[in-house]
């Protein structure tokens, strides 16, 4: 199990190890075009599989700016 934080919404999710970033985004209700996933501070492609103890941040890409 790993934990994922969603910013800027400040939500926290529990994530099963082994699922892909794409599956994680779908489960969290995001389109792959609308969010970036950082694992241990670095962006990863959508087929990256979550490992135990990964520090995951889902960044909802905001409009504007």
């Amino acid at each position: 199990m790993a934990k994922a934080r969603v910013i800027p919404d400040n939500k926290e999710l529990t994530v099963d190890s082994g699922i892909s970033v794409e599956e994680l985004l779908k489960a969290a209700g995001f389109n792959t075009e609308s969010a970036v996933v950082l694992v241990n501070g670095s962006p990863v492609p959508e087929d990256y599989r979550v490992k135990e103890d990964d520090e995951i941040v889902i960044v909802r890409v905001l409009s504007g700016g």
Binding site: E33, S34, A35, V36, P43, V59, V61, S63
Partner: peptide, 9 residues
């Protein structure tokens, strides 16, 4: 939009 975010990041 996602590319712009990732580039700046």
């Amino acid at each position: 939009e996602k590319e712009s975010f990732l580039y700046a990041f």
